[in-house]
Design a protein around this nucleic acid. Structure first.
Length: 273
DNA sequence: TTTACTGTTGCAGT
DNA sequence: AACTGCAACAGTAA
């Protein structure tokens, strides 16, 4: 479920449901998800209270006080909470047994998700090394550095925005929405953007991600009751997934192409190359 | 039956 | 250094 608005929705759900609970033990059914030392993870997390659930970009952060668990949902990771018995499911990979008899389950059909157990004092370093850019809000996502970075890049704008380096949180859905809204073709070279286009792009990144958070994220190809999977943002999308349908702004038929290996939707009249 | 596609990221090539 | 393509994996649709 993973762009920033979906991860934030999951964070809010987890915050309500598991903060204050203690993890009694963890069962790892598929080891490759745990990227740090599994033995240390299992021994250190036992009997630790979940103090808070935070988020940075598309990363979820379980705060245990001295340590943190950084969880990335990648393409299909989900969290589920069961009050008692958990059903049989071959995609339940990590099981957190909590002190009130409930069970937090990490489900991931494609097994791309990751978890890392780290001392809390390495948190800032972690995101610095990963080159995760500023959160998309007016305070931290400043226009000037964004302008400068774009003016110095010969990359196509869409793949550049997906790197998470200039701003955190955009994925394949919202980057297409932001570009449509800003009337910018996904293959435009970053340095070719005019000042007014960069300003519009900056504002739309903040506006659309914020709107999507308010709508609880988008639920596409969804299954059933995952935490925070109650989003309605899919009803407000203007371009993603709408190939062969008329552009809501000009009526032109929406096209789909590949840009940097990703399926990309755009209006050939509103977004000129 | 095969192939292409999928809300992500990181790495191995050139 | 900066790009591109693909691998990690499983399911669905054509």
């Amino acid at each position: 479920m993973p762009e920033l608005p979906e991860v934030e929705t999951v964070r809010r759900g987890l915050e309500r449901l598991v903060v204050g609970k203690k993890v009694i033990s963890v069962e790892v059914k598929f080891s490759k998800i745990i990227k740090t030392d599994e033995k240390i993870f299992l021994s250190e997390i036992a009997n630790q209270e979940i103090k808070a659930i935070d988020r940075r970009g598309k990363y979820l952060i379980f705060d245990f006080g001295d340590n943190i668990l950084i969880s990335h949902l990648r393409m299909e990771g989900k969290y589920l909470l069961f009050d008692d018995e958990i059903p049989d499911n071959k995609h339940f990979h990590i099981i957190f047994n909590l002190d009130d008899e409930s069970t937090l389950v990490y489900q991931d059909v494609r097994k791309f998700g990751t978890m890392e157990w780290l001392p809390k004092n390495r948190k800032l370093d972690y995101f610095k090394i990963k080159k995760i850019g500023p959160e998309p809000n007016e305070k931290t996502f400043q226009l000037k550095p964004f302008q400068k970075s774009l003016s110095e890049s010969t990359k196509k704008i869409k793949p550049l925005l997906l790197e998470q380096r200039l701003v955190a949180g955009l994925g394949n859905i919202y980057v297409d929405e932001v570009l449509w809204s800003s009337k910018i073709h996904p293959m435009r070279i970053a340095s070719s953007l005019k000042k007014f286009e960069v300003e519009k792009l900056h504002d739309e990144i903040i506006r659309i991600l914020q709107l999507a958070i308010e709508k609880g994220g988008s639920t596409i190809r969804s299954y059933r009751n995952a935490l925070g999977e109650d989003g309605t943002m899919q009803n407000y999308l203007n371009i993603y997934g709408l190939v062969d349908q008329p552009c809501s702004r000009c009526g032109t038929t929406i096209c789909k192409i590949k840009v940097g290996g990703r399926g990309s939707y755009f209006c050939p009249k509103c977004q000129i190359l």
